[in-house]
Design a protein around this nucleic acid. Structure first.
Lengths: 209, 209, 209, 209
DNA sequence: AGGTAAACGAGACGGTACGTCCCGTCTTGCA
DNA sequence: TGCAAGACGGGACGTACCGTCTCGTTTACCT
């Protein structure tokens, strides 16, 4: 995510009119927001503090983002698409699933994400733009990726053919989010193992074997 | 949760000195908060608006609860323990599990809970009291209840003996919370069915049958 | 002027409800405003700077006055009624007139008044409350006082019977205001003498003598 | 006033280098400013609104005038010198004086002047350039004109020889300004008559006649 | 005809102030 | 002591101007 102001998709005819925005300003705001998020947490981050740390004026931030939630969203999740893409796909379904889960837990536990997520989710209820963007963040990348994984597993015959990918997605994202951000009881490894095991085999005792 | 003011345990020597608190005041505040939560949502609820709707002054609220988050917590979750207790325990594990899940989804989707939860979870990060209370809410009642369920299932031999109840708890609560409050894609029934099915049987294709 | 918030004449039934306003706060705001007016001038005075100097929060000022112009008005002119009353009335019309003029020039040249007046007059055009209050300030006290003076002079036969007190008022106030605040060319004494002389005798050469 | 940019006297060596300024732009800015002044008043006029109405960019205005006050000054008073010159000089002092006063009142009551004057006078206190320009506006033209008038009257013997023209100027300008812009109580004719009468004959009852 | 320099529209930018809102605490007087 | 009312400090909000700046484009004059 490198171009803010996505909501207003810039209908302008000319590609550039007027003084262009300084890209360093964007980055300074993002960096300041990330730093503040990890330092003081979502609620304590104010537009004023962001502006101060970024060496920028408050109106300059409002010129780019419509509200604090959007600034934080981009600061916390903006780089997700770029970095998180490199999932290995070893070919073995359980290995790949475990990696997927580990990636999810790791993602929620990145300090910036950890600081931002619940605030964003709360704010999201009153901001339809934010709803769309959070949805897209999860759906466009992660849901699709999981679908690929499941399809590969089904082709190999190790995954039930009638599995509902969306439900599986909900289970994985919901559980990792809850485990990482809300419950906070288990270590990463334990959570990953148990979730992977449960998703693979279920809770039911096998009748045979 | 029927006895507010947990933080300040009332140092008074005599049980009653001076004018006693009017218990109707407590209920008026709770009712006003619940109404406002469903009407305008967590962030739009202000102590002022609660006081106004309850016909009460702001200090009267602060005399009973230390902050808005605690008022909302009690308003949204205070009655949980009383009402939600009546789980049937039919004896059939899958039926009971399905009922447990349905109860969880239904809980998250109660209008007041739906309006309050994400706000409370966000606020919880900076308020250790609130952390403890949310933890207790889930643990004391629900975690124990699930443990009973699992134990019964294990005794009957329909549940794997090595199942980790805590992990199962995380999966169930996390998934229902996410599905009900964040994803919002599935209907209740579908979510319940799929989650139940996945937890029972897992995603793995059976080698035989 | 000791009771701000004149615009909303406090319809409350009870004389005192809730915590009463601290009168020292009012005085601190007035003193801060007066100091700032003389130090930096009308336009440089901001609500923030007043609050800072007064050791008060901005909302506290807005609780008492609806805008900067009203704060400045009270700070600059609020004490006028009390102090300026002691006009001597020697009995000799020209002496009293001169004293009246000298008082007017002295008033406009008080540092606080000098700093505030033109700003207030400019602001007045968009604020009907302020219009009324400026009008009252001049009319209630000064116009009446001049009328007394003129009536006494007419009784003694030294003032033309058909003199228009309102026009005389306009001449005196307009000229002193202009001479003191806008023209700034003459010293006080010269302005007083010339205005007094002109008003007494006019510009016309006497036909005889 | 037809040549803007007085402050920065165009250091360029050649009289014209590069693209020359479009003179229609100047006029568009002046016209827009005049329209806005009468429509919304001094304080509501912003450089942005002027630019918008004039179909011009903000820097284009700043290229010609150093601040909003100067733009407004020229828009409101720029054409004064040209139009107001034609005072008749009938030869009869009182007639000419009345005409002078009527001209002054009429001037202050021109819609654009009425909207601009008090704002300019307030701004003038922090802008020495503006001080000089306002002074010149009044002095160069009007003060001199009045001096001519008085001299002619003195020659004819209808005006006291020791009259102070500057004081008379202060009285006439101050009174008309106050009467027209601040007091707003009298109609034009009444103000003119009374001021003229007072200035001619004074307030003193004649001992004889 | 091409080069050069300023005008020009557009809009970013730092800065400052505005007036409002809410929080949580406090200070009254009355019950 | 409970309670209603409301003052109060503090802090954040989002907006509006100001005057300056940096772009790319246009328009004239001058080689």
């Amino acid at each position: 995510m490198t171009a803010p102001d996505r909501g207003i998709p810039s209908v302008s005819l000319d590609p550039v009119r007027g003084r262009p925005r300084d890209p360093r300003t964007d980055e300074a705001i993002m960096a300041a927001t990330r730093q503040l998020l990890t330092d003081v947490g979502y609620d304590q981050v104010s537009m004023d503090s962001i502006a101060r740390v970024a060496g920028v004026s408050r109106p300059t931030i409002y010129r780019r983002w419509p509200s604090k939630a959007h600034v934080v969203f981009d600061a916390a999740f903006g780089a997700v698409g770029d970095g998180g893409a490199a999932l290995p796909h070893s070919g073995d379904f359980e290995t790949d699933l475990r990696e997927f889960i580990r990636g999810a837990v790791g993602f929620w536990r990145e300090p910036v994400v950890e600081a931002a997520t619940l605030g964003i989710l709360a704010e999201r209820r009153r901001d339809s733009d934010l709803q769309i963007r959070t949805q897209q963040l999860l759906d466009d990348r992660i849901r699709g990726e999981l679908a690929d994984l499941v399809r590969a597993g089904a082709d190999q015959g190790v995954v039930r053919a009638d599995i509902d990918t969306d439900a599986l997605f909900t289970v994985l994202v919901g559980t990792t989010l809850y485990g990482a951000l809300i419950d906070g009881r288990d270590g990463t490894d334990q959570l990953v193992d148990e979730l992977c095991s449960l998703v693979m085999r279920g809770a039911q005792a096998r009748e045979k074997e």
